[in-house]
């Protein structure tokens, strides 16, 4: 058995979250999420949390496990033996109930970076061709599962909720770097705003937290360099020569 200390919060009843402990079986193949499912099925049906795929794809099971943002379906109980395991909601988001957080801020930010292909000119009749090398340019950034662990790890987002944030900027870069896309200029006003890439101080914790190897911190830094160089060109070159 292993002890799980789970943060509970009942809206309207509790002013602040409380901690509740449960003993769950310690099985080699059990993730933290399996422990929570055991609690919900066997011990306390009132526990609320989100999950779906159980295989690190849907991005809905993010929680703070022993102080670190983790996918609870991809984090194993045995790694925390002999325990106890602290399970808290994702940090930096308002808590709706127990381990469920309000993700609407992220949801309003995502579409702002226009995360779709913006193509000038003709759309080819059959398909867009792309070489493997062209795909490598952005592939890493396309692995994001919108789990928001990076937002939870980011102190800038904690202090400055307007910050566009790691995943959204990385997603903007994912399209900017796509050979089929011409939308970089359209995304610039959002990505290069004060609440966009410039707010980032490269703490780098988002990249540490990301379960998919997206490296949002690197994406942001790279974007800053591009944006700064293009701003410099705007500044130095006469209007007509701009591109």
């Amino acid at each position: 058995m292993i002890k799980m200390e789970v943060t509970r919060f009942r809206p309207g009843e509790d002013d602040a979250p409380i901690v509740q402990s449960y003993e769950v079986p310690l099985r080699k193949e059990w993730a933290v999420l399996d422990g929570l499912n055991y609690i919900k099925d066997q011990l306390d049906g009132t526990l609320s949390y989100r999950w779906s795929c159980r295989m690190g794809i849907c991005g809905s099971c993010g929680m703070t496990v022993n102080g670190k943002p983790q996918l609870s379906c991809a984090t194993f109980l045995t790694d925390y033996a002999p325990g106890p395991v602290r399970v808290e909601p994702l940090r930096n988001f308002p808590v709706i109930r127990d381990l469920v957080v309000d993700i609407s801020d992220f949801m309003t930010k995502l579409p702002k970076v226009k995360p779709w292909l913006i193509h000038d000119g003709e759309v080819p009749e059959d398909e867009f061709l792309q070489t493997p090398r062209e795909m490598d340019e952005y592939k890493k950034y396309s692995m994001c599962i919108n789990c928001m662990l990076c937002y939870s790890a980011c102190p800038v987002y904690a202090l400055e909720p307007e910050f566009l944030g790691p995943a959204a900027i990385a997603l903007g870069q994912r399209y900017n770097l796509d050979s089929r896309d011409d939308g970089a200029l359209e995304r610039r006003d959002v990505l290069a705003s004060a609440a966009g890439a410039w707010a980032c101080t490269f703490v780098g914790e988002c990249s540490t937290a990301c379960p998919k190897g997206v490296d949002p911190a690197g994406a942001i830094q790279r974007y800053k360099l591009t944006a700064a160089v293009s701003a410099l060109k705007d500044f130095l070159l006469p209007r007509g020569a701009r591109r």
Binding site: P17, N92, P94, V95, P155, A158, T201
Partner: peptide, 27 residues
Amino acid sequence: MSAYRQPVSAFWWLRQWSYLLFVLREL
């Protein structure tokens, strides 16, 4: 709906070694 907002301490950078290292780097 009365969601609970998790507070951020002014000493957030003392919570984790990697945060402290970041502040030292900036200093």
